Simulated assay, not measured.
Amino acid sequence: MKAVTVKKIKDELNHRSQNELVELCLKLSRFKKENKELLTYLLFEAHDEEAYIQSVKDLVDDLFQEINTKSFFYIRKSMRKILTLTKKFIRYSKKKETEVELLLHYCKRLKEFSPSIEKSPRLTKVFHTQLSLAKKAIATLHEDLQYDYQIEVDNLQ
Rank of each mutant, 00 (worst) to 15 (best):
Leu39Ile: 12
Arg16Thr: 02
Lys136Asn: 14
Leu42Asn: 08
Leu42Gly: 05
Glu112Gln: 11
Leu131Lys: 09
Lys36Glu: 06
Lys119Gln: 10
Leu26Thr: 06
Arg30Ile: 09
Glu97Thr: 14
Ile138Phe: 10
Asp48Glu: 07
Gln157Met: 13
Ala137Ser: 15
Phe44His: 06
Lys2Met: 12
Arg122Val: 07
Met79Gly: 03
Lys70Leu: 08
Glu118Val: 09
Tyr106Asp: 03
Glu45Ile: 08
Ala137Lys: 12
Gln18Phe: 13
Glu49Ile: 11
Asn155His: 07
Phe89Cys: 03
Lys87Glu: 11
Ser120Asp: 15
Leu24His: 00
Ala139Arg: 13
Thr124Ser: 15
Glu49Gln: 10
Arg76Ala: 06
Thr40Asp: 15
Ser29Arg: 15
Lys2Arg: 13
Thr40Gly: 14
Lys7Pro: 01
Val4Lys: 13
Pro115Ser: 02
Val56Lys: 03
Lys36Asp: 07
His105Asp: 04
Lys8His: 06
Arg76Gln: 13
Ala134Asp: 07
Tyr41His: 06
Ala3Trp: 00
Phe113Cys: 10
Glu45Pro: 05
Lys70Val: 13
Arg80Gln: 11
Val153Gly: 07
Tyr92Thr: 05
Asn68Asp: 15
Asn35Gln: 09
Lys33Trp: 01
Ser71Pro: 02
Leu103Lys: 09
Asn35Cys: 15
Asp58Val: 01
Leu59Arg: 06
Ser93Ala: 09
Leu156Gly: 08
Lys119Tyr: 11
Pro121Asp: 10
Ser78Gly: 06
Glu143Pro: 12
Leu102Ser: 04
Phe31Ile: 06
Glu66Gly: 00
Lys87Arg: 11
Leu63Met: 14
Ser132Thr: 06
Lys7Cys: 05
Asn155Thr: 03
Asn14Asp: 05
Asp144Ser: 13
Phe89Ala: 01
Asn35Pro: 12
Val153Asn: 10
Ala137Leu: 10
Lys32Arg: 03
Val126Tyr: 12
His15Lys: 04
Tyr74Pro: 00
Thr69Gln: 02
Arg30Cys: 15
Glu34Met: 07
Asp62Thr: 09
Arg109Pro: 01
Phe31Arg: 11
Leu21Val: 03
Pro121Lys: 11
Cys107Met: 05
Phe72Cys: 04
Asp58Tyr: 01
Val126Met: 04
Ser78Leu: 04
Ala139Phe: 09
Tyr41Thr: 06
Leu13Ser: 00
Asp61His: 09
Asn155Asp: 07
Glu49Lys: 12
Met1Asn: 13
Pro115Asn: 02
Arg16Asn: 01
Arg30Ala: 15
Thr129Ile: 10
Ser29Glu: 13
Arg76Glu: 15
Ala134Lys: 02
Lys32Val: 01
Pro115Cys: 02
